[in-house]
Design a protein around this nucleic acid. Structure first.
Lengths: 223, 223
DNA sequence: CGTCGCCAGATTGGATCCGATTTAAGTCCA
DNA sequence: TGGACTTAAATCGGATCCAATCTGGCGACG
């Protein structure tokens, strides 16, 4: 056999379906409010509806979809208040993650941060690529977090808001990009130097600033 | 018809199963590490395994059980570090919830806080009842939170740690109870007065203190 | 005597099928 | 012409059935 993915047995279909749907929502292929039919997804991936239903339950717990009994699943729609609330939670949890991570970063992980910072700056002005680099940079700062719960929570936050960040970043001026880059440099510096307290403050402010800017774009949530 | 629970159609079995399992874990009937067999649960509730499997996926996302592919589900076991990490998250999120809640509390909800505080003090020394009252008192303080995400997250935290708090409370001295009651009174006061900042600090310290005491009981996690 | 491999029972994962509920179109009547 | 009722198609929830995988015990071999 060729390689077989170093498989410890086969991976359950539910996980494959869940990942596939996550990617589809993440990439914008499935927009907020879009209906997700079990039969359609099942046919598309060549499985029955059973693993699709289990995957949908999982995604619902992650906040990515909303299931209405006997009616169906839809990609979760966030209104302005929900979006802001997620940012408020991020303002509390991401500094914690930073603090838990910094002391445990390996040399490779530190290199990743440096590299991703450079990538991020290189993509300035390129909305789609910048968005992706932004995500990876921030998550790289939390790579040292030892317990999976906190990390999963933060990733879920990024996933549920991804689609909306995409809309927001389209409104970025060159100055917005520049300020972002500046803050990222400071954060990376704090991470590499082990300046826990300073990094925590920087991250909180970084997210807080994003949330404040949000208030100027409330209209993006009207539909 | 009598009342029919104001039903908008029937409630899906998955939710019934999930709630039942949550309760069983919550009450200690299912201990951490206990294996959860789909067939057993299904038979017990008179349903097939399908809704059981979906419920298990849901509980996994909530952190209550761990599913090993092709092997089965077990009630989640927390080691000392995971438990401490959850408390650290609570230290960040519950003050936020308090702040979001206080300004929006209705008169009924304020009465609930007063009443539950009294109940809590009345159960001093009675571990089992105190545990339950403690939970309800704290959650009552967050009753004004408008967005469900934050609240669900906090409830999940309380659920996953419930079994361990039960063990810890058994080690409480009269002084421990007294100190707890004192802090609860201050928190209730802040909630009723609308002292947001003070309440946030109190709650953070309240949880922090619980976490510190935990360090003296590391042995409870050995198994 | 301990370890590795093999076989049977138990348990999970997935597919297909059926009944129940929702949704939407179409019709009737004011 | 517009709204409410009826009916039919689409879709979901759940049950039963079958295949794949894991667990535990037995025996053979080193």
């Amino acid at each position: 056999m060729p390689d077989e993915a170093s498989a410890p047995g086969r991976e359950p279909m539910t996980q494959v379906v869940a990942r596939s749907l996550r990617d589809a929502i993440h990439s914008g292929e499935l927009e907020p409010g879009a209906r997700v039919r079990q039969e359609t997804v099942a046919a598309e991936l060549g499985v029955s509806r059973i693993p699709v239903r289990e995957a949908l339950r999982q995604l619902e717990s992650e906040g990515l979809v909303v299931i209405v009994p006997n009616s169906g699943a839809k990609v979760a729609v966030l209104d302005f208040e929900e979006y802001a609330e997620i940012y408020k939670m991020r303002e509390r949890l991401e500094p914690l993650a930073f603090g838990e991570s910094v002391g445990r970063l390996t040399d490779e992980q530190k290199d990743d941060i440096t590299r991703l910072l450079a990538e991020l700056e290189a993509e300035t002005g390129n909305a789609q690529a910048y968005l992706e680099a932004d995500r990876r940079f921030h998550l790289a700062c939390y790579a040292g977090v030892a317990t999976p719960r906190l990390l999963k929570m933060i990733v879920d936050f990024w996933n549920t808001t991804q689609r909306y960040r995409r809309i927001l970043i389209a409104t970025f001026s060159p100055d917005d990009y520049e300020l972002n880059n500046f803050e990222h440099r400071l954060i990376a510096e704090a991470a590499l130097n082990g300046s826990v307290r300073r990094g925590e403050d920087l991250i909180r402010m970084h997210i807080e600033r994003s949330r404040f800017r949000l208030a100027h774009h409330r209209d993006l949530f009207n539909r």
